[in-house]
């Protein structure tokens, strides 16, 4: 599986994503600068976590206007898998590749902690190695992960099986609507999630629950 990681000014999980991808796929991903106009031919594009443009104006807003995003959109339309983690999820909602918006955490504070997640949907390129309904633990680390969408959109996401990850009961760290932690696009080739699967691929760091996101992609895309 060939992959690319897009680097925006002040992305800061780009290296973490690259390390996880290399560890899981055996291939170094291509690092693509935000000012470039084209992403090479890859199976997976990752928009990493961080504070692109300092999170100034709104998280992900300015990154969503950067030059490379046009090609991310074009490739997503053609069905290339796109994974947006944390700030990457914020960028995806700002570009319109995913519906809704990520607002300030309900308690107004940045929150870093491992959280329980239930797998709501295993019918996707990102989650097929998980069992539907199982609970896993990924860390979250964000100040604006409070997912918002109007009721009609939320109903539609749920009805179409596009809620991929939900915070386990009592563990919603940010006030997110219907405990939503990660969602899929209509064509199911774009996933955005606030928790960090790339930080739980190495047993030395206390967990490997994130590995199966990458295993799912390898099974689907290789």
């Amino acid at each position: 599986m060939k992959s690319a990681v897009v680097v925006f000014p002040a992305s800061n999980c780009d290296r973490d994503a690259a390390v996880a991808l290399e560890q899981m796929t055996g291939q170094k991903p291509v690092m693509v600068w935000h000012g470039d106009s084209e992403i090479p031919d890859v199976d997976l594009i990752v928009l990493p976590g961080g504070f692109s443009y300092g999170d100034y104006l709104r998280c992900g807003a300015m990154a969503s206007q950067s030059r490379i995003i046009r090609d991310v959109k074009a490739k997503a339309d053609k069905g290339v898998a796109v994974l947006g983690i944390c700030n990457g999820f914020q960028v995806l909602t700002e570009t319109g590749l995913l519906p809704g918006a990520l607002m300030r955490n309900a308690k107004l504070k940045f929150v870093c902690r491992p959280v329980g997640l239930t797998i709501e949907e295993s019918q996707s390129a990102f989650t097929r190695a998980y069992a539907k309904g199982e609970t896993v633990r990924f860390p979250v680390a964000h100040g604006e992960g409070n997912y918002f969408a109007d009721d009609a959109t939320l109903d539609r996401l749920e009805g179409e099986g596009r809620v991929a990850f939900r915070y386990a009961e009592g563990e919603n760290p940010n006030g997110s609507a219907r405990n939503i932690a990660g969602i899929l696009s209509e064509k199911r080739n774009v996933l955005g999630l606030m928790p960090h699967p790339e930080r739980v691929v190495d047993a030395a760091l206390g967990g490997t629950d994130g590995r199966r996101v990458f295993q799912s992609l390898i099974e689907t895309l290789s």
């Binding site: 800061n12 999980c13 290296r15 973490d16 390390v19 996880a20 976590g49 504070k109 940045f110 929150v111 870093c112 902690r113 860390p139 680390a141 960090h196 790339e198 930080r199 190495d202 030395a204 760091l205 206390g206």
Partner: peptide
């Protein structure tokens, strides 16, 4: 410390 990102860089062995 929950207001600090202590796992970024994916090398934190002890939090």
């Amino acid at each position: 410390w929950e207001q600090f990102d202590y796992t970024v860089m994916a090398d934190t062995v002890q939090a």
